[in-house]
Every structure is written in structure tokens, then in C-alpha cells.
Design a binder for these strands. Structure first.
Length: 268
DNA sequence: TTATTCGGAAATTAAAAACA
DNA sequence: GTTTTTAATTTCCGAATAAT
């Protein structure tokens, strides 16, 4: 008779593989599978959020007197159905490869970070692990990569995995094309979640990178719109109030402070 | 056969509501 | 204040699938 007893924390690999983790480092699964056993993922907050999470009350409300309008109401948060709904806002599979992420993140930290020290390398890598199923992390990465591709001194990176049959790697302007592609991907996937009503810092940074993209592409009106959005999100997040910073650890707090400062330096 | 993947059941956790 | 209810998030079982 063994005690099953769920471990309090599964490692990153076991979490992805959905297998039982023994919680030690390195864990048994990682050892046998020759994987490096890490515990980088940041656990999400559990439990209801907002003023009594409203799904069930909405459901009850709509069932009570199911009028023609109630079906419309039911479609609100059940985003997975209804014919005219969601014209595919899911991430494009295979577009944002680990190679591209690595290349762009490296480029950011060597060339852009001195001027905009608004990301933390370790924390960004953690976010990248779950980008597949977290649209906020995904759009942060696509906007970052788009921004990097649009930089004039960015070296050529193949968007297609390895051997490019169209010779894009050697074509001038290919990086701008890739950047524009990723920019469009960001805008599209961003529609799949509400980044304004309960914004995260990732949303804010995404807006800032979008500003950078549009500015680099000489689309100035769109650029200022994104910058304005980023500034507004900063206010919604209370970044102008010192007391909001105490809830963050040193790394996160200084990152937020620098981001806030950069926003206003950029707005001039 | 064994190894891997992944849908989803069960457990865990924390916020909101109800209660004293 | 304490307890109960509710829901978001987690772990990981076990069936399906892939690899050998």
C-alpha cells in the first residue's frame, strides 16, 4: 500500500508531460529521460478572482428565462463555439520557433537592453516556456521578435526552419517582412483576450514593442496610439503610485520603475 | 512489447460570501 | 473574527497513440 500523495510542485518537464513528479532535483523522470530538471515556471494564483467570478451566475441568469437574447449573452465568455465567432485567433503553429526567440532575445539583451532595461532575462525565459498556451506571453514574444526584426542592424534570421527554398535568408528586406508578419500575428492573437480590462505588465510591454514596430515602419499614427495605450495601462496598473511597488520583489520592482520612466521619456 | 502523449478527474488553493 | 462556498489552477491517472 503506497501513499499516492500529490507532490506540491512538479518540475517543468513533468508538468508539460503530465506525469507524476517526485519533486526532487533532478527528479526521477528527468534523470531517466536525460533532461535537465528545472523548476522555473511561476505558479499562477489560484482561486476566484474579481467580484465573485461570474461564470456560474451568468449561466444561471441565461438559463432562467432563455430568451433570444440569452443565447447572445451565453456566448460572452464561452469563446469556444458559435459559428460567426472567433475567426481563428489562435497562435500560428510553427511561426515563432525557439530559434527565432533565442536569436531575438539575444539581440535585445545585447543591443537594446542598455537603452530600454525593461525585461529580465531569466524571467523572460520562464515566460517563454508557457507561451504556447498563454496568449499574453505569446504576444509579448511575437511583439519583441517583430521589434527586433525591424531593427536595421539585425542580422538575417531564417523564419523558415533551416533550409529556405525561397532564398529569403539572402534577400534584402526579408527581416522587415518577417517583422511585419510577427507584428500582424501579435495584433491578431491579441484579439483573443481582453488586454485592457485586466491588464498585465506583459500587455503593457507588448504595447510598447508595438509602438517600436510601428515607429520603425514609419507608421507614426499607429505608433503613437500604441505608446498612448502603454501609458494608459501603466496608470491602470498604478505604476505612478509608489505603494504599488512594495508587492514586488527587487527585480520586478526595479524593472517596473524603469519601464515607467522609459514610457515618459519616450512620450517626451 | 515499451515509451510517450494528453484529456480530463481529482486535489489543492485562495478569494468571496455567509455566518456568529 | 471563523466557516463555508465557489472557482482557478494544479498534479497526475490512465487510455490512446507512437516508437521499438
Amino acid at each position: 500500500m503506497s501513499t499516492p500523495a500529490a507532490v506540491k510542485r512538479a518540475c517543468d518537464a513533468c508538468h508539460r508531460r503530465k506525469v507524476k513528479c517526485d519533486g526532487i532535483n533532478p527528479c526521477r523522470n528527468c534523470s531517466t529521460a536525460q533532461l535537465s530538471c528545472t523548476y522555473h515556471a511561476i505558479p499562477q494564483k489560484k482561486g476566484p478572482k474579481g467580484s465573485r467570478a461570474k461564470v456560474i451566475s451568468e449561466l444561471r441568469e441565461t438559463q432562467r428565462h432563455h430568451s433570444s437574447l440569452s443565447s447572445k449573452t451565453a456566448n460572452r465568455l464561452n469563446g469556444v463555439h458559435s459559428p460567426p465567432c472567433s475567426p481563428n485567433l489562435a497562435p500560428t503553429p510553427g511561426l515563432l520557433t525557439p530559434d527565432i526567440i533565442k536569436e531575438c532575445v539575444d539581440f535585445f539583451f545585447t543591443n537594446m537592453y542598455p537603452n530600454m532595461p525593461i525585461l529580465h532575462r531569466g524571467r523572460l525565459d520562464q515566460q517563454a516556456i508557457y507561451a504556447d498556451h498563454n496568449p499574453e506571453s505569446y504576444t509579448l514574444l511575437t511583439s519583441l521578435c517583430a521589434f527586433m526584426f525591424i531593427q536595421p542592424n539585425m542580422p538575417m534570421v531564417g523564419v523558415t526552419p533551416s533550409n529556405d527554398p525561397f532564398g529569403l535568408d539572402s534577400m534584402p528586406g526579408a527581416n522587415i517582412m518577417s517583422g511585419t508578419l510577427l507584428l500582424e500575428e501579435t495584433m491578431r492573437v491579441r484579439k483573443s483576450y481582453d488586454h485592457l480590462e485586466s491588464p498585465s505588465l506583459s500587455s503593457l510591454v507588448t504595447s510598447f514593442f508595438l509602438f517600436g514596430c510601428y515607429y520603425g515602419l514609419d507608421l507614426h499614427n499607429k505608433a503613437w496610439f500604441q505608446l498612448r495605450e502603454a501609458t494608459t495601462l501603466a496608470h491602470i496598473l498604478g505604476m505612478h503610485k509608489e505603494e504599488t511597488y512594495v508587492q514586488w520583489d527587487t527585480i520586478e520592482a526595479s524593472r517596473r520603475r524603469r519601464l515607467y520612466w522609459l514610457l515618459f521619456a519616450t512620450e517626451r
